[in-house]
C-alpha cells in the first residue's frame, strides 16, 4: 500500500497560511532555517517515502500514475504561496557568498 504521510505533511506546510505559523512547531521552524535543515528535516523522509511508493508500484504505467498524482497534488499548493523561479539558486547565493578573491591572483589594471 502506498504511503503519503510525508507528502501530506509537506503539502500542509505549503498550504499553511502565514498567520498560523507557529515557531514552537519544529516543522515550521525548520522552514525558517537554512536549506540544509529543510533538506534534512523534510526531504530525506520524502525521498524515502517516494522511493518506497515507486518500488511498490508495479509496471511503468503505475509508476507514471504515481508521479502524475504527486505533481497534481503539488499543483494545488501553487495557489497558496507565491512560487518564484529558482529560489535554490537565490538561496545558494544568500547563504554561500562568492569565493573571496586572493590578493595574489588579482589582475592589475593598467
Amino acid at each position: 500500500m502506498p504511503n503519503f504521510t510525508i507528502l501530506n505533511d509537506c503539502l500542509e506546510l505549503l498550504t499553511l497560511p502565514v498567520d498560523n505559523l507557529s515557531l514552537h512547531n519544529p516543522e515550521h521552524s525548520s522552514l525558517i532555517d537554512s536549506k540544509e535543515k529543510i533538506f534534512e528535516f523534510h526531504i530525506v523522509d520524502f525521498r524515502r517515502e517516494l522511493n518506497q511508493n515507486i518500488l511498490h508500484a508495479s509496471g511503468t504505467d503505475q509508476k507514471q500514475d504515481m508521479i502524475t498524482w504527486y505533481i497534481s497534488e503539488l499543483m494545488r499548493s501553487l495557489n497558496h504561496k507565491p512560487i518564484t523561479a529558482d529560489p535554490i539558486l537565490e538561496a545558494a547565493r544568500i547563504s554561500d557568498p562568492a569565493p573571496v578573491e586572493k590578493p595574489g591572483l588579482r589582475k592589475k589594471r593598467c
Binding site: 509537506c10 506546510l13 526531504i43 499548493s77
Partner: peptide, 16 residues
C-alpha cells in the same frame, strides 16, 4: 517562512 516554503517546493520537485 515563505522563502523556506519556496525551497521546500523546489526540493520536492528535484526529488521527483
Amino acid at each position: 517562512f515563505l522563502r523556506g516554503c519556496n525551497i521546500l517546493y523546489h526540493l520536492i520537485f528535484n526529488e521527483l
